[in-house]
Design a protein around this nucleic acid. Structure first.
Lengths: 229, 229
DNA sequence: CCAAAAGTGTTCTCCATACACCCATGC
DNA sequence: GCATGGGTGTATGGAGAACACTTTTGG
């Protein structure tokens, strides 16, 4: 049943920049478009906002439909409202960014009905629409936010070593950090539980594993903190 | 000429939280609604986004139409997409916040055709829709941003004393600051031009006036800075 | 025993903080 | 001369930054 309006309205979509992390790179999950415009080009997962769902719900629904991801860390980024973003019609998009544990989701994305794949953030293919600009904004937000909110932890497995944690920060911030100062700082925050476990199957001394102290972690996530690493 | 769509679409509006500053308070500019729903209630200036304008342009247009304000500092805040925000139909709104020199605009708002007025931020009337939540978000953003970006300067007249500047930070952050430390810090940033002028018509020693050093100011606004006052 | 990464302390510098008095001006 | 705000310096403590060697383990 078609709807009629007095004036033309912009259409409203959501788009998600999904970040993942492996040993070497910060990666972004992209979907290959099968329809015009930009058929064959890679693009951010996303789609139209329905009238009976919030925009947050729309972002989660599209993420689940197009990539199979659920229960991820998801936060609104910025709303892009340029007049010529889409060649078909006027479309305003609310961009979100998500952080996921890449290893948990590597296979799933690749075997999805639609063509989905992870790309290193500094080696992306040419993207559809203005999606490169959205990715740039999301990266800037992530780099800024990681300094005063412990959100980056969403990118790691539940148990991790301090070296892994440091590596994550180095990859996101794109610079090297001093090992001793990093450990001193992160341990002083008291958001890590030291476990009685170590890495397995490594060809050198095994590193101790840590887990987030959920209580202090949530507390600190609310208050913000000064993580000037 | 009415337009027809296959599926119902959310409508899209913009709303603006306009901050101003006087000697005592941080204030917000509100418009009294003359139509239902919420007729008679105070609300944020705003309105529908047209298909042929960007959302930034829509925000500036609505601000000009409803309050007469032009050329103000304006920045996107957040997009509010709750399903029941508006009792008539589904409306998603992109919220902006603006900073203006209150003294320049005091009269204009009051004499506008529609009923507009400034209210102290901690003494607002009951607002229409979810606008109180939008104001809360805007205040939180302003308080956070003022610490690492010199945006607050948009609230002051072109020439101002260090005491005025300190007063502005105290009002925004809602706490007292040490005079000597404040001056030391702000002068060390080298974004102020010391003028050969002083306040006029005060019943005590007249304070020296300063102006922003546009070059360094723009530079620092881009880079961000650490204003941990 | 060798390769590889884990783990560990100290020094220095800088910046935020705390704090109190004299000065200039108008009335 | 007094009331009002303008303007100034110093001492202390804490945190970030720089920096190198020993330990553990597997192969």
């Amino acid at each position: 049943m078609p709807f009629t309006y007095e004036y033309a309205r912009p259409a409203l979509t959501v788009d998600c920049v999904v970040f993942g992390l492996d040993d070497e790179d910060l990666k972004v999950l992209l979907i290959q478009r099968d329809l015009e415009p930009f058929a064959g080009r890679w693009a951010l997962p996303g789609g139209f906002v329905h009238v009976d769902e919030t925009i947050d719900q729309a972002a989660r629904r599209e993420l689940a439909e197009e990539t199979g991801l659920t229960k991820v860390f998801l936060e609104q980024l910025y709303t892009f409202g340029g007049v010529d973003r889409d060649p078909r019609e006027r479309i305003v998009t609310v961009a979100y960014y998500a952080l996921v544990r890449l290893l948990d989701h590597k296979v799933q994305a690749a075997t999805d009905a639609r063509n989905a794949a992870w790309f290193a953030i500094d080696d992306l293919p040419k993207l559809a629409f203005d999606h490169q600009g959205i990715v740039d904004a999301a990266l800037a937000r992530l780099q800024g936010k990681v300094r005063y909110q412990p959100i980056g932890f969403e990118l790691l497995p539940p148990k991790f070593s301090l070296t892994q944690l440091q590596r994550m920060y180095e990859i996101i911030l794109d610079r090297e950090l001093d090992k001793r100062n990093f450990r001193k700082k992160v341990l002083s925050l008291e958001i890590l539980d030291e476990l009685d476990e170590v890495e397995q199957d490594v060809a050198h001394r095994a590193a101790r594993l840590y887990r987030f102290d959920e209580r202090n972690y949530r507390q600190l996530a609310r208050e913000g903190f000064n993580f000037e690493i």
